[in-house]
């Protein structure tokens, strides 16, 4: 779990004078599901393109599996499966023919890998149907099939669940989790569907304006977004004192004259209410609350609107 297999060192990509990615350094460890979270234009896709070699960096370094020379990076990329932006395939070929093209191109001897990849994503029954007749969801599935066809050690996925229906999203999540669990496939993924990322990611990189704002593990993020009790009382200070002294709640934070927050595990909520009322504290609201990944991200970027 400790081996870093993707590392960018102060990597930058300029388009003219505009920086799509600026001095960005990330480290992805083997076996992680690393989620890139950012607004539109934050630099997520550019970063993924840099990793996949689709665009050369203006400055900075990239290391894959500990290799950094152009020749070694080429070797390393043969162990990466990717789906960047919309899946691109030949419209006049069927799903199987499209994958067969890439199987020949990659020199894969095992002809069965095409059928297995199609079966994995549920496209094994599309027959001679051409790619141009596929729905958006089917195109996304075929993109995933290509990404996993060569049993890669790393999957780089850019907005992979766009266009998938709820069942498709669940299947997609299960595929990723099973690849990660059974084959230790490392996943670098970006998505706008933050709730979905929250369910699968083991580490997060928050990006804004081409810069990394924060790197955080899933456990840390869950801790930061953890639920708490929010109480609105007629006298917050008095309520806090009662909770600390009589209920043994150390993590009580007074948020205002009438508002307070109780973190950690304060015990049975009914008992807390009863004790507060018995001590003459008037309660107008008492509820459990936490923040979502989306709210956490919005707070992180200073409340700017998420596109």
């Amino acid at each position: 779990m400790n081996e870093v297999i993707i590392r960018t060192e102060n990597v930058s990509k300029l388009y003219g004078k505009a920086a799509a990615v600026c001095d960005l350094s990330i480290q992805v460890r083997r076996g992680e599901i690393y989620a890139l979270v950012g607004q539109n234009g934050a630099g997520k896709t550019t970063l993924l393109k840099l990793v996949c070699g689709l665009t050369p960096p203006t400055s900075g370094g990239l290391e894959l599996f500990g290799q950094s020379s152009p020749r070694q990076l080429g070797w390393a990329r043969a162990h990466i499966g990717s789906m960047i932006e919309t899946p691109g395939f030949f419209p006049y070929l069927s799903a199987e023919e499209n994958l067969e093209f890439y199987r020949i191109q990659r020199g894969a001897k095992d002809g069965g890998c095409v059928r297995r990849a199609l079966k994995l994503v549920g496209l094994d029954d599309t027959g001679r149907k051409k790619f141009k007749s596929f729905s958006l969801g089917m195109k996304q599935r075929l993109g995933l099939a290509l990404a996993v066809m060569n049993s890669p050690e790393i999957l780089v996925l850019d907005e992979p669940i766009n266009g998938l229906d709820p069942v498709g999203i669940r299947e997609f999540r299960e595929i990723l989790q099973s690849l990660n669990r059974e084959k230790r496939t490392t996943v670098l993924i970006s998505s706008h569907i933050l709730g979905e990322l929250f369910q699968i990611a083991t580490a997060y990189g928050f990006i804004s304006g081409g810069r990394l704002l924060e790197h955080v593990s899933a456990a840390d993020l869950k801790e930061r977004c953890r639920s708490c009790l929010r109480i609105e009382a007629d006298n917050a200070e008095k309520a806090a004192a009662v909770l600390r002294e009589q209920c043994g709640c150390p993590a009580v934070e007074v948020l205002g004259e009438t508002e307070l927050r109780v973190d950690g595990n304060p015990g049975d909520p009914e008992r807390l209410v009863r004790v507060l009322v018995e001590n003459g504290v008037g309660i107008s609201q008492f509820y459990r609350s936490g923040i979502s990944l989306e709210q956490y991200f919005i707070n992180l970027i200073g409340g700017k609107k998420v596109a």
Binding site: G74, W75, G88, F89, F90, R106
Partner: peptide
């Protein structure tokens, strides 16, 4: 041209082909 139009070249380049 077709590879440019259909955005299929990225599948090949991303695989590390020189």
């Amino acid at each position: 041209t077709e590879e440019n139009r259909e955005h299929t070249l990225k599948n090949t380049v991303a695989f590390g082909v020189n």
